[in-house]
């Protein structure tokens, strides 16, 4: 062996035996690789629609020509979705239904189409309040949030 390699040690030479350390490392690495999670998690940001405190003073309503358009999404049992637009300068009251897909899930394609239409028709709308029937599953709620997030920056979940 070359001079730089490990070899037998003579008197006075101390040589670290790294074979057990390598063994430990091998076991540790194998354990960590097995226990690692390979799923990729991500998030959707949403707010909670909080009701104003009961003792809050009523704020003065804005002038008629500056009334904001309120956008609500309601999910009924059976994943039927209703997109409701109210208010605005012309005092609109429009409801756009989105029927569930054939397999009973949220019809994402139609929902995306309707949301894009709303965004182009009412560009001042920047947020939506989302509420659902008690039996509607969280999966459906998240699916709607995903669709909404593609066109609107803010989603609020109804908590009351």
């Amino acid at each position: 062996m070359s001079a730089g390699g490990g070899g037998g040690a003579a008197e006075g030479d101390v040589e670290l035996n790294i074979a057990p350390i390598v063994d430990c490392f091998t076991v540790l690495i194998a354990y960590m690789l097995v226990s690692m999670s390979y799923i990729q998690l991500s998030i959707f940001e949403a707010g909670v629609a909080a009701s104003p405190p009961p003792d809050a003073a009523p704020s003065e309503p804005p002038p008629q020509d500056k009334l904001p358009v309120t956008f609500n999404i309601e999910v009924a049992d059976g994943n039927r979705v209703e997109l409701k637009l109210t208010g605005g300068p012309t005092n609109i009251n429009e409801t756009i239904p989105v029927e569930a897909a054939g397999d009973g899930t949220i019809n994402s394609a139609v929902l995306n189409e309707k949301l894009t239409f709303i965004k182009t028709t009412y560009p001042t709308v920047t947020e939506v309040n989302l509420s659902a029937a008690p039996a509607v599953r969280y999966k459906s709620v998240v699916k709607i949030i995903q669709a909404v997030k593609a066109v609107l920056p803010k989603v609020f979940l109804a908590s009351s």
């Binding site: 998030i43 707010g47 909670v48």
Partner: peptide
């Protein structure tokens, strides 16, 4: 179900936790 989620979120909102990060699997 949304009823359970709503109750838990109401509890969170009443303690000031109003910015939710809903975790999903990609």
């Amino acid at each position: 179900p949304y009823s359970t989620l709503k109750s838990v979120l109401a509890s969170a909102a009443n303690t000031g936790f109003v910015d939710l990060q809903l975790v999903v699997v990609e």
